[in-house]
Structures are given as C-alpha cells and as structure tokens.
Computed example of a mutant assay.
Amino acid sequence: MKKNLKSKWLLLLPLAMGAFGVTACSDDYDPWELLKTEVTSTIPQSYSEKVAWNGGTFTINVKTNGSWNIEVPKWLSVDKSEGNGDATIEATVERAWRAGERTGEIKLNTAGSESSNVAGTRSDKINFTQEGLENALKITDCSTDLTKESIFDNDRGYYYTQYGYSIKYTIDNPLTDDEVNNIIRNAYIRIYKSTRYLKNDCTTIYLKKADLTPGTHVLKDDKWYNEYRTEYNYLQINKVEIIIFTAYGEKHLY
C-alpha cells in the first residue's frame, strides 16, 4: 500500500540525499481511508409490517465514500442501480399477482478504489415481505340479527322456538373475476352460538363467489335452529367470522 511504501521511503531518504546530493522535495501522497457504508429504507422491514398487496413506492438511502451497485427482485424496480458516493434511490414494488406472502431481498454492494484512496468492500441486505393478493378483500361493515318465533308442533302437541338469523356485510373487492377464481378455493361464514346445552357451537355457511363481489350482501335463514325445551329457551350468537380459503391457508376477512 502507498502508506507502507511511504514509511520505508522516508527511512531511506536521508541516506539517498547524502549519497547523491539530492535536495528534499514535498511528499504529495494522500492518506488512505477505510470504506464506510450505511443503508436505510422506508420499505417496511419488521415482522409485523409488510408491503401492501398493491405495492408502492419507497426510498433507499445510501451513504458511502465508495462506489456501489444494487441487486433487487424482478418485481421491484429502482431508478438507479449503481453510482458513487451518497445517493437516494426510488424503489417501486409491483402489485402482487397471487395469494400468499412473498419475500424480497435488496442487496447493496459497496467498494473502495485506488483512485479515491478508499480501501475495502462491503455488502448490506434489506429483507422485506409483501402481502398476498387475498389481502385486497376487506369487510368494511358486518351486522347480525337474530329472530325467533313460537311454533306449535301438532305431532308432539307442544310449542317450540324457531330461531333465524340475518347477516349483512359490505365487502370491498378491487380484484377481477379471474383473480378471485385463481386465488380463492372456497369462502364461508362461521356462526358461533350458545344455548343452555351447547357452548360456542359452530354453524358453517358456504358462500357462492357472487357473495364476494363488491357491495352489500344479506344472508338469511328463518329456520336456522329449533329449541324444543321452551322452559330453557335461550340462544345467543357469540361471534361471526367471514373467511376465505386459498392455497396458502385461511384468511379471516372479519
């Protein structure tokens, strides 16, 4: 390295000057410095934070005294892929195209150079996750009404209580029909009810694909459940879930 050569030359310099009568001159060697690199980004990088299913634009900030180049997934584009010194890079994540999360890696490679008297190389990585396309579906409102009617059973000779339900929900669905058909294997509603003898019993209602179209939908069944022990007449809906099933498992919309 230049600094080592410089030190040896300085030790021999008095002898050389004495032997050949050379006059001393100024030393114009520049000191070497180590490569410094710092990279940050506005892309969500924690376990609980993910890039949204519809992508977005983010920044990658590079601080370095060397040259750099960047490697990214095919579904992420950058406005510059190499440079020298500090830089702000605009990164755009594409819209997801399938169900299930996908992970990406951004790799920044930096290096010093002899011309700039910077020594060293370094690689830094940013890992992130993007939501799957199923996250585009959102339930914005949901309500449940329970009805009951006292009915006389002629065969048995006494009254029983007949319960019904009405579930109203509003769905936000920006996906195309093809996307829905490709990512959703099934969809259903779960109603959890309790009676005097049943605790958190579950009824599953399978949905048609039409029930996932944008807008408000109502599901009704006036003859859902019969309670024959009228002296213990009691039924309560504890919880309603709206779920889609993809190749990557269940996704709770509500």
Rank of each mutant, 00 (worst) to 15 (best):
Y248I: 07
D28C: 15
L219T: 02
L133T: 03
L219A: 02
E71V: 10
V240D: 00
A136D: 03
E105D: 15
E227C: 01
L207P: 03
G112C: 03
E49K: 13
T37R: 15
T140C: 01
G157S: 03
S41A: 09
I183L: 15
A111C: 08
Q162C: 01
N84A: 14
T37Q: 11
S116M: 11
M17Q: 12
D201M: 05
N226I: 00
S166Y: 03
T129W: 00
N4H: 13
T23C: 05
A99F: 04
A187Y: 07
K168M: 03
L137D: 01
A210T: 14
K251I: 09
W9T: 09
T161L: 04
V218F: 00
E49C: 06
I126T: 08
S116C: 05
A111Q: 12
D27S: 04
E82Y: 14
T129V: 15
I183W: 04
G18L: 13
T129S: 11
G157W: 02
Y29W: 05
I106Q: 03
T37G: 05
I139V: 13
D201P: 02
S81I: 12
W68Q: 11
A91I: 04
L35I: 01
E33T: 11
I243R: 11
W97I: 11
I151Q: 07
V118T: 06
L34F: 09
A187V: 08
D79T: 14
T103P: 05
Q162Y: 00
E101I: 10
P214Q: 04
W75T: 05
M1D: 12
D30A: 08
E134A: 06
G132S: 01
N117Q: 15
S166P: 07
I171E: 01
D221Q: 05
Y47V: 13
S116K: 12
Y29M: 12
W75P: 05
T59A: 15
L76C: 07
Y234M: 09
D145L: 09
G55A: 14
N69R: 14
G132V: 02
H217L: 01
A24S: 14
S115K: 11
S41C: 05
G215K: 03
S166D: 09
Y232N: 04
I243E: 01
Y234L: 13
I171G: 01
C202K: 12
F128W: 03
T213S: 09
L34Y: 10
Q45K: 06
A87E: 09
V118P: 00
I89N: 04
E101M: 11
I43Q: 03
I183N: 03
P44F: 08
W53I: 06
G164T: 01
N200A: 09
D211P: 01
Y165E: 01
V180H: 09
E38L: 13
D172V: 04
E38N: 10
W9P: 03
K3R: 13
V22M: 12
S113C: 07
E90S: 13
K63E: 10
D177G: 06
R185V: 11
F20H: 06
K3Q: 12
D222M: 02
G55Q: 14
K3E: 11
S113R: 10
Y192A: 10
K74T: 15
L76M: 11
Y47A: 14
A210I: 13
D86V: 10
T40V: 06
